[in-house]
Design a protein around this nucleic acid. Structure first.
Length: 212
DNA sequence: CACCAGGCAAGTA
DNA sequence: TACTTGCATGGT
């Protein structure tokens, strides 16, 4: 399994190169982006983040001081703006209640932090793992819809596999390397944008030779 | 026009 | 437990 997963990784890296994730200047911005990009094109998230920046609200205190209706207004281009205003506030309140310093918070016990964040309404496993890995540089593997498609298509996991099962597949068979986890997930997402995605097989896909 | 995009929670049976 | 639905903008 380790060989299969690494072979896929090397193929993707050779085809697409380093992805330089996460796009975001500070850990706080990364965490905000993780919530805003739920089921949403990154292009639209960038507009919302630009709005927050323009309002001087890309830090905990000023962002938390915004009325929720005003926050939703700024988040409009990211879609689901009412839902996301609530979810983002839930995260901010949680951080405020746990010291107010994101980097310090994310440096705590990994399993404990992951459980705490998962308990925040609006934060699911992908969002939480994204925050931990990309904002906190913690070794947790991020999975998503593209990951599921890749794993099932290569026969590495069953159709109904849970998020936790997918994550465990990577973490049980790869070294707990933050740089590797970072690049691997980014490359899988990059592959999602690749034109071969709907077809079961495509000669131009860098993974075609590895398909069963 | 339809379909998709770096999900998640709440409702239903 | 296992499905289904709501949430919403913007690009292709």
């Amino acid at each position: 399994m380790r060989g299969r997963l690494l072979a896929i990784y090397h193929r993707l890296y050779a085809a697409f190169g380093a992805q330089h994730w996460w796009p975001g200047e500070t850990p706080f911005e990364v965490a905000v982006g993780a919530v805003l990009t739920q089921n949403t094109a990154w292009r639209n998230v960038e507009r919302a983040i630009a709005n927050l920046k323009g309002a001087g609200c890309l830090e905990l205190a000023p962002l938390l001081a915004l009325p929720e209706a005003r926050l939703a207004e700024l988040l409009r281009p990211a879609g689901y703006f009412n839902v996301k205003a609530r979810r983002l506030r839930n995260l901010l309140v949680h951080l405020r209640d746990h010291g107010g310093e994101l980097t310090t918070y994310l440096a705590g016990d990994l399993g404990r932090r992951r459980e705490e964040l998962l308990a925040v309404n609006g934060l699911g496993p992908e969002t939480v793992d994204s925050i931990l890995l990309y904002a906190g540089n913690r070794p947790t593997f991020v999975c998503d819809a593209y990951t599921r498609r890749l794993l099932t298509r290569h026969g590495l996991i069953g159709e109904g596999a849970s998020y936790e099962a997918m994550r465990a597949l990577f973490m049980d068979h790869l070294p707990a390397d933050v740089a590797l986890y970072n690049e691997y997930h980014a490359l899988i997402v990059r592959t999602g944008y690749h034109h071969c995605k709907p077809q079961p097989r495509c000669a131009a896909c860098p993974l075609a030779p590895l398909l069963p």
